[in-house]
């Protein structure tokens, strides 16, 4: 972990609701594990005093990729208004990322939210090991899902939208019964309700939730220190009090209470 500068070298608007930022980060990029985070200093001390966590993924050539949706948070809005060539002051990589799949064949990646980069980073790992990958995304409508036109053909893609404009009409968790039978391990990013149904359905479909099956990324909007000193990010788990910034943000969901 270090405090360093990264430079925005590419900024694409992915219509209608996404931005894709590419940053060069020679000090960090090859050490960052998908799911780990950086704390970005947003320049305005008044509206965003604390650093903001971002969850990029390494994309080779010393670069980091970050897919963002417009966000009412002033810090994230500041970040989205950066231009090519702008420099960001970051601290990281922080926390524990997704573990590499060990002795697993079928990898399920699932999200109902916007932290897609850790999942796509995990997807690349899995593909390089010749594992089978299914990516399931859910959102309110097709336009809100990140357009993954260029997914490798080896990846099976499933979508769910509330209005039925893409894929299954309903929640992405409706797809779980079949997917959970197939999967050997699940990596998830998104809402607490996604994690909640992942746990409940796993118990139902697989007759119990064992360790090393469900991993989810917990991400409170603010991490004041990111290094375990402020204790703002404490989390109750089966194994006692943990800190999201040190012990997470990726947790084995079998160890996390149902309301988290």
């Amino acid at each position: 972990m270090k405090q360093t500068q990264i430079t925005l070298i590419q900024k694409e608007s992915i219509a209608p609701a996404w931005w894709h930022l590419t940053m060069t980060a020679p000090d960090l990029a090859d050490r960052l594990i998908p799911g780990q985070f950086l704390l970005v200093r947003c320049a305005d001390l008044f509206s965003c005093y604390l650093r903001r966590p971002i969850f990029p993924s390494p994309m080779g050539n010393d670069c980091l990729s970050l897919r963002l949706r417009p966000d009412p948070d002033p810090g994230m809005a500041w970040l989205l208004s950066r231009q090519i060539g702008d420099v960001l002051d970051v601290i990281g990589p922080l926390g524990k990322g997704f573990p590499l799949p060990q002795e697993k064949r079928n990898i399920l990646l699932i999200s109902d939210g916007f932290r897609l980069d850790p999942l796509l980073g995990q997807m690349n790992h899995a593909l390089s090991e010749n594992l089978s990958v299914t990516l399931a995304l859910g959102g309110s409508r097709a336009a809100n899902l990140y357009p993954l036109n260029s997914l490798p053909s080896a990846v099976e893609f499933q979508a769910a939208t509330l209005d039925g404009s893409l894929g299954h009409r309903g929640l992405v968790t409706d797809l779980l019964p079949d997917l959970l039978v197939w999967a050997d391990v699940v990596y998830a990013t998104g809402s607490t309700s996604l994690y909640h149904s992942l746990k409940i359905q796993t118990e139902r479909v697989r007759f119990g939730l064992v360790k090393d099956f469900l991993y989810g990324l917990l991400s409170p909007p603010l991490h004041p220190c990111g290094v375990g000193s402020c204790l703002a990010c404490s989390l109750e788990t089966a194994a006692g009090l943990k800190l999201i910034c040190l012990d997470g943000p990726v947790f084995d969901l079998s160890e996390i209470g149902n309301n988290d």
Partner: peptide, 16 residues
Amino acid sequence: RLAETSAGFILNTGQQ
């Protein structure tokens, strides 16, 4: 335990 304010924040960890 935490809330950001204008140019600062409120933190209450209760001596954990």
